[in-house]
Design a protein around this nucleic acid. Structure first.
Length: 259
DNA sequence: ATGGTAGCGGTGCTA
């Protein structure tokens, strides 16, 4: 089972690029972030015609997540529990029915800039809610994959220029500590588990020639429950997608599971 | 170097 995550930065602008990547990479499951679209405006029929079941959790203009799956999806949950007043669409979760059943969550963790301020407070509160919800999910002791745009640079080697991020919400000690607390629940960060090679990134800013200078950061991650980590066979970044026509500022990253 | 670029939606916010 191949499970990818891809922050597409707008489905209207990225439909062709997403389609091209889906055809060549052929993930069974693709978790998408920043669809920036209402559910009714997502080009559902186009992706259904490609053989994908489409489940969206959108909002107007900002945020929005989706799961596309060639395998059946069951028990879809929309929204991160823990705050009924939160209207930002950043979480979707479903059970993928393959040879084995795998619970998959696609998430778009808040950016949090500028710091300090209400956006950073929201980021940390959201991470605390995620910690509580993941604790509940882990108690089920099933294969669980939490993938998406975490907006967290875990370690200095995950940035080409870590010194440029020291005051940024993506790299502040509080952000990294909250990420490590998730890991400490017993999760495995798939890419780190599969490679020691530094200098591999999933995001390059549109500004200041970041891509041309390879000034990237690694902020898109798969976290795996012990039952999923036991099934992990590969994890790769589709870097070449960033060099194409009208790219997103993120590229896809995927895992394969023996499931 | 306190800029720069991109998406959405039709202005200014978000990243």
């Amino acid at each position: 089972m191949k499970i990818a995550t891809f922050n597409i930065n707008g489905i209207k602008a990225r439909q062709d690029a997403l389609t091209e990547w889906l055809v060549e990479s052929a993930p069974d499951v693709a978790c998408l972030q920043e669809i920036k679209s209402l559910d009714e405006n997502f080009p559902r029929a186009h992706f259904e015609a490609m053989g994908y079941q489409v489940e969206t959790h959108g909002q107007k203009s900002f945020n929005g997540v989706a799961i596309l799956s060639k395998l059946p999806l069951e028990d879809v949950r929309r929204g991160l529990p823990g705050d009924e007043t939160d209207e930002q669409a950043r979480w979707i979760e479903a059970t993928v029915v393959g040879q084995k059943r795998v619970r998959v969550a696609g998430l778009y963790l808040p950016n949090g800039n500028p710091v300090p301020g209400p956006k950073y407070d929201y980021k940390l509160a959201w991470m605390a809610r995620m910690q509580a919800h993941v604790t509940q999910l882990l108690a089920q002791e099933i294969p669980l994959v939490l993938c998406g745009d975490y907006n967290v640079i875990p370690q200095p080697e995950d940035a080409a220029k870590p010194e440029a991020w020291i005051n940024d919400a993506l790299f502040l000690p509080q952000s990294r500590a909250a990420f490590q607390r998730l890991i400490a629940l017993g999760l495995t960060e798939a890419f780190r588990a599969r490679t020691e090679k530094p200098g591999q990134y999933t995001f390059w800013d549109f500004q200041a020639g970041a891509w041309e200078r390879n000034n990237g950061i690694r902020i898109d991650h798969h976290l795996l429950s012990p039952q999923a980590a036991d099934l992990l066979t590969d994890c790769q970044i589709d870097k070449s997608v960033r060099g194409r026509e009208r790219p997103s500022d993120h590229v896809p990253i995927w895992i394969t599971l023996d499931a």
